[in-house]
Design a protein around this nucleic acid. Structure first.
Lengths: 254, 254
DNA sequence: CGAAAGGTTGAGTGCCATCAACGGCGGTGG
DNA sequence: CCACCGCCGTTGATGGCACTCAACCTTTCG
């Protein structure tokens, strides 16, 4: 299939800490049996019993909830290298749906195999644990977006978050990346209407902060956007700290 | 100190699954050395290295972020029986503050002891794992609140969530509980202004859905409030499912 | 070639924030 | 013991940010 080193999960974890060749191979083997999911398809079928989770290898997926009157809130957006279905994978069927936004490649990972991996490679376990911590920070920022930021701040922050996440998996170049989301999806993620998303994107474009070429987003004025959004670069700084602590954690667990 | 059976963490986990006397004792011993925290005090001091987390035994605490211009968003509210500082306890110092709302009782738990507990009582590990899953659902609902619900729906949902959480630790009677939050805190949690929180609470009162006697909240029309807020009772239904699965999970990890 | 999906634009409106007060109450120090 | 003060709740007037409604255009795809 794909080469071990280009797997997004591997790239993301390698961002957190140095990985040995053996660990990289183990991660690749974990994702050895991917399957395709067409776009706009429920990835986690409801009612099924879940004996594991999924790793998203290619594409994008959303977890969301639709209210009785049709309003939709997107809880989070899964990008390549993200786990899908953790930690609420057991009983969320009825509550939240997980759907592919575009055609996806996903690899099922049984709990048993994951735990086996953790036993053999405790440092990997620690690193994955930290990657969940980073994800929690993304949730928190998302909440601040929707709760206390204006529309333009929200969108600015959102675009910067995506840039950072694409950088972490090596899918961004020069402050530019391919955005797999429609404006309607952006609106449903940020609690805004489609029309206002459009107007606000135009405003960001008009102030020469960003450029949009179809689905391609380019951050023209990174510092300006960071200031506007009050964006904390610590997404990245965190990575360094994680590296320092990795041995402590695995030491404690041994 | 307090009796093992009245510890809120124990009560909450006992809600999830049947606990043996031995497990209850182990949980009590884990929280054996609590310390007091005065109100309005940072619970997790910044810059310290974190070798563990805390269990909140009494009181209430908030995790929040203040934006440069003073706007505040509360990320979550910790009630008795909740863990504080998970999972982002390592590097969040600069980003989010955790502060006591009232005088609190907290018990520090070193990672080493926690992992030791998990080794001896794998069923406890599974249960605590599930309790984190429930917490994730609370975050998701919180996001839906601020993203897509109107002010009155938000507050209705918020009051129902708190009722459910207080019930889970045995600190609610007959749809009534002691709310340790000011209206300003409610506003900062839900992304609303103090004045509008006040007005909306008045509206809920006017429609005979709730009653407020000082800090005491009473849900007068539970079904009406549930319908208004589109509240999913599955917070509780989840607990049952968790029970069914507990043995599978611990089986897989053994 | 028609239809559906996505993007764009403008007019009107309403929810909720902001500004500005006032009242009650507990604490606290003179 | 009382006056003062700060915290919290309450209430009303005004205004703006973002939603709703209603189009139209472009591109894609069957």
């Amino acid at each position: 299939m794909t080469f071990a080193s280009t797997l997004p999960l591997t790239a993301r974890l390698a961002h957190l800490t140095q990985l040995s060749a053996e660990e990289i191979a183990a991660l690749a083997e974990l994702q050895a049996n991917p399957r395709k999911v067409p776009r706009h398809r429920e990835i986690i079928a409801e009612g099924r019993t879940y004996d594991g989770l999924l790793v998203l290898i290619e594409g994008a997926a959303i977890r969301y909830r639709i209210l009785p009157d049709g309003r939709r809130q997107i809880i989070n957006i899964a990008l390549p290298g993200d786990f899908i279905g953790f930690p609420g994978c057991f009983f969320e069927h009825a509550l939240y749906s997980i759907t592919s936004v575009v055609e996806c490649l996903v690899a099922p990972v049984a709990f048993g195999r994951l735990l086996g991996l953790f036993e053999r490679y405790p440092r990997l376990a620690a690193t994955i644990f930290w990657s969940f911590s980073c994800e929690t920070a993304i949730y928190a920022e998302h909440l601040i977006d929707v709760g206390r930021r204006s529309a333009i701040e929200r969108i600015a922050h959102f675009l910067l978050e995506l840039l950072t996440r694409f950088e972490a998996i090596g899918q961004a170049e020069a402050h530019s990346y391919h955005l797999p989301l429609t404006q309607e999806l952006i609106g449903d993620a940020l609690g805004l209407s489609v029309q206002y998303v459009n107007q606000t994107l135009r405003q960001l474009r008009g102030e020469n902060l960003i450029r949009l070429d179809g689905p391609r987003v380019t951050i023209l004025d990174y510092d300006g956007l960071v200031a506007l959004a009050d964006f904390q670069r610590s997404y990245l700084e965190r990575f360094r700290i994680a590296e320092l602590r990795a041995q402590n954690w695995s030491g404690a667990s041994a």
